[in-house]
Design a protein around this nucleic acid. Structure first.
Lengths: 167, 167
DNA sequence: GTATGTATTTAGCCTAGCTAAACGAATATA
DNA sequence: TATATTCGTTTAGCTAGGCTAAATACATAC
């Protein structure tokens, strides 16, 4: 099949590009104590918070224990605060601290600095292609991996709305 | 500055997209004993080999000890073979085994299967955007991170040519 | 022939992923 | 009301994959 070959090529190139992009950016992030996993989780807390640990795990597509440990580290480093829910004693709400918000934004600034020279060498058209592609990808990845499994589709953007219905 | 804001936005969205893409694909790869790191390294060996461990580390932008360990695992699992260089006793050449080549291709097939449904929902135009973007990215990332540091620019594609000059 | 350089490995550390299982709190049911 | 179940989080313990520092073994230059 023609279309499947095209998709295979796209998937594999995306995979390769993603791996190498992350390796490139890792150093910048870690220079300020913001690993990739933390940067990604923290940005959900900063832009989408307050959020529970479980929701954050779903939004980030990692297991709950993994997120618990990330949160422990971020709390120890003063990036987020825990707050128990008044009505439901099982729930922990996460909020960014001032430091957390600042570090996240610094991280984002450093990250672009690491790519800026190279992004600047691109034509406007190429930059536009990258911008569009990242949007297409996020939209694509936000969809459920396998609609048939019944796993609820969770997106970073509906974290608030899901919890908003909690009583 | 206008352009820097645009670049920041692109860099951050790419970062986010890359993280989530890899988390999505990881399960598929690991289902057949091909982690992301192995899949990426193995593809260099299969498509660009024979290659030395040091060159592979450079091509993958990881340290030599990291690559040594990856190779140990891949060799243990019969994906690659080591061969000492006849003229230079320090050098280890890596070649894919039949199994390694097969597994790599299976991995690539599974990987697209994991994204296929979703790629199929895209318009031809969007698919084209993703394809272009991955090419632009690989080209961008192949360039030296910081041209000033004197670090030699190493690409997956010139692995052969670099080694071809060895006597 | 000694010193220096190069390719790989060893040792030891860290983060971040996982599953299984424990725990405490909430909720449903008999 | 007592009991069972479900839910959110944490603990415990494993693995892979990243790093640096230092050891090893070979090659080369002086």
């Amino acid at each position: 099949m023609q279309i499947s070959d095209v998709n295979q090529s796209i998937a594999n190139r995306l995979h390769s590009a993603a791996i190498h992009l992350l390796r490139r950016l890792r150093k910048q992030d870690e220079a300020m104590g913001l690993s990739q996993a933390r940067a990604s989780a923290l940005s959900v807390v900063v832009f989408g918070g307050p959020v529970t640990i479980g929701d954050l795990a779903h939004a980030e597509h990692v297991s709950a224990p993994t997120m618990t440990r990330l949160v422990i580290g971020m709390e120890r480093d003063g990036l987020v605060r825990r707050e128990r829910d008044a009505r439901d004693g099982r729930i922990v709400w996460l909020k960014p601290t001032t430091k957390g918000t600042r570090i996240l934004h610094e991280g984002r600034r450093r990250r672009v600095a690491a790519l800026a020279e190279q992004l600047a060498t691109l034509t406007e058209r190429d930059r536009q292609t990258l911008a569009s592609a990242s949007q297409i990808l996020e939209r694509l990845l936000r969809a459920a991996p396998r609609p048939a499994t019944g796993e609820r589709p969770v997106s970073t953007t509906d974290v608030r709305s899901r919890r908003a219905t909690r009583r």
